[in-house]
Nucleic acid binder design. Sequence first.
DNA 1: ATTTGGTATTTGGTATACCAATAGAAAGAA
DNA 2: TTCTTTCTATTGGTATACCAAATACCAAAT
Lengths: 235, 235
Amino acid sequence: MKLTPITTNFTLKDHVYQRLKDAIAGVDIYDEGAELRLDERSLSEQLGVSRTPLREAIARLERDALVEVIPRKGVYLRRKSLDEILEMIVAWAALESMAARLAAEVASDAEISGLRKIAAKYNEGVRDTHISEYSDDNIRFHQHIFEISGCGLLREMADGLFVHMQAVRLRAMNEGNRVERSVVDHAEIIEALEARDAEGAAERVRAHTMRLHEHVRRTWVELEEARAAKAANDR
Amino acid sequence: MKLTPITTNFTLKDHVYQRLKDAIAGVDIYDEGAELRLDERSLSEQLGVSRTPLREAIARLERDALVEVIPRKGVYLRRKSLDEILEMIVAWAALESMAARLAAEVASDAEISGLRKIAAKYNEGVRDTHISEYSDDNIRFHQHIFEISGCGLLREMADGLFVHMQAVRLRAMNEGNRVERSVVDHAEIIEALEARDAEGAAERVRAHTMRLHEHVRRTWVELEEARAAKAANDR
DNA sequence: ATTTGGTATTTGGTATACCAATAGAAAGAA
DNA sequence: TTCTTTCTATTGGTATACCAAATACCAAAT
């Protein structure tokens, strides 16, 4: 009789980490008055594990800058400031630009055509009803670039930013006519890759992401100011 | 009467994390037969803390990819493969290139001249006796670029790679006439920054780091092969 | 009624005890 | 001798107990 070895890579710590990460991703931390605080004992009870593996998972989340642990006070979901979001977009641009450059050099034609397949359905423009679907495909598009770059580390580092980029992109998607522009950008990126134009691909990816940066910078300042004004008003 | 708040940010976990990280940085993990294994109980005894904060620190180190925790087996210092080292150099290139681009746009003249000051002592070439000193200054040069980029996140992400880059750079420094080339590269980078040529600065930084990449790729394959041959010979 | 000091409770930080898996040593069979 | 097996010791994973800080609450004094 043949048996596959039992999954020995099963540690509570890893499960808890993944579970918490997913849960955090599903919380709109920018919603006012959302539950920001994580209670260790309550969580350990909910998850059915003791506090020890839970705290080790939290230590990793802290390293991910997803939560903030204030000694003797508590663990809090970290609400990113506008500046931090902008810096994440910059870092993302740096990583994805390099990924595109590598992809132009090493990816197979099949891998590049995979990108075209993702982008293809929007050749005729995007109907408004499909915004959230487009958002998903948009994400897949960008992830795919990292995958075909052949550099696992770039992909991994981008993953760390991904949770946040996802939220940012979704939020920015509906503002202005950014979707149309995005479709065009993607097409140009694919063209550069197909032409094996590393420099062009890198530049277009960078420009594409930095347009998001510019948009967020211009638009969300107003949101922050509005929030600040509202907070002042509440007082 | 005015008092500054007492330093309550003192947690063992953080201290242990920092201490371990420093200690790991001081170990030549590529030295054959070096102590790769971390024993929890022994460490906790040496540091004078219990295993709990120690393990939380290890959880963070694991997230940094500095150690590998194999469940039920042990904690091991991660010896990077050649491929991983090459990927780190690529990621570093991506980050520093972007940092240089930003620096060209936002850094003050004073900050840029800080770079020139670091590089200045080597204008007349490098005497062999100063190799290790040059290595230190080299590191300061690259770190300074991140600092004057004004993007804390780029700097932070680079920091994660830094421990490894330091070892790589030091090891590569003595090979070939790389030092001379390095001095020239640095000078050109500074010129681009002073000219506020963002594109040029980004490109030169990228090229500089990718030259290291190319060198390591070509040279160290031989080392790996030699090691493999030796290992085969030992059998 | 308000302030203030003390007390109880909550909660994160740390230590310790226990469990389970692995590896190595010792013992036994071929 | 050598291979196998079993037992034990080591070690990481987890749970729990305890401590100390922070906060909330209450009572007494003004």
